[in-house]
Amino acid sequence: MQIEFKNLYFNYNNNSEFKVTVLKNINYLINKNNITAIVGKTGSGKSTLTELINYFLKPTSGQVITDGFISENSTKLKFKVVNKLRKKIGYLFQFSENQLFEDTVIKDVSFGVKNFYPKDDGYEQKSKEALRLVGLDESFDSRSPFDLSGGEKKRVAIAGVIAYKPDLLILDEPTAGLDAQGKKEIMDLFKKIHETGVQIILITHDMNVVLEYADEMIVLDNGSIQKYGSPKEILKENVEKYNLETPHIYKTINALKEKGIVLNNVTDIPSLVTELKKHG
């Protein structure tokens, strides 16, 4: 799905004395079926940018063009048009485990499918497929979502978003509040979903996740794009000035460099091992 930001500006509380400028002159084109990571410190406008994609917000000036749907300040959005777009986008919010409300897991997961495809009888089948994909077996189907653990609730929320088969998944800090194992499991799950042809936009503070999973990254700071490109190139340089953490692997390389061991071509742990072996 092609997403284009054209001279995009966004203010909160425009027309009042409490105006806050969040995005300044954003120009960017996401046109490949990639995992795109959007990073930046708290308040840099990451969530605002993704909410603009999904028509939750309207640009103050400029345009956001998502899959041919143009959003600008002057357009009056009709619900039917908005829903046509939202059908193609799965938006997983931060603390998505709080959005569950039905009395059984299967009903909650099929909620989105029923809303977007009211004439489709196959919603139960689709929901079951989504639940199996996120790793919850049949025994969960008829349980109440409120009896589940935090991690399981999150999986139900993910299933609820992927059940209607969106082309694009927007993930707002999906790994926040998870332990190391849970983080890896969830990110591997998203990778699996990505391999079925779903494009992903990922907001995160975890540079290790970005380095391992993302194909493309955008660094936001003070409302404008500071850097963009391949995570391997960007994270190698000093990113701490944008309040980002250098990934563990590059920290290791830098520490080794200080001891006089210079390694090139290292991007993950296996390549680190091979390079170290070469060094003797």
Binding site: F93, Q99, N115
Partner: peptide
């Protein structure tokens, strides 16, 4: 704030709060 977040989450799943 919480209402806003849930509102957005449910409308991204296709709920129409205003029309319909």
């Amino acid at each position: 704030e919480e209402t806003n977040r849930i509102y957005k989450a449910q409308s991204s799943r296709g709920v129409d709060f205003k029309h319909g």
